[in-house]
Amino acid sequence: MIEIRLKTILGIVNLVGGLKEQKVYIEQDARVFDLLEILVLKYGHEFKQKIFDDSMEINRGIAMFINGRNIYALDGLKTKLCLGDEFLIFPPVGGG
């Protein structure tokens, strides 16, 4: 197992135990979809609904970053996670 850091902001924080940052343990060579599966198991229906639509596609506006890089500019949900990575999930955001 390897340790990564999960960071969330705004409306996602309360869906992951109220923690803006927490350690999560995943299998070596795990990918983003493996991590999301672990989080759905851990945090249940509300978290799942926020992230996935009924066809288990990622909801519009949900953004995810590994060490600050948009996962969709990497390998998307298949992007590999490494020891010490920072995984950040945004709810839909805008403005500024």
């Binding site: 902001i9 909801n59 709810p91 955001v93 805008g94």
Partner: peptide
């Protein structure tokens, strides 16, 4: 839009501080 009414109408642009 997943953000316009659910989030932005309440929080406005200052939510971007967190982003």
């Amino acid at each position: 839009s997943p953000v316009l009414y659910p989030e932005f109408s309440k929080l406005g642009t200052p939510m971007v501080v967190d982003v």
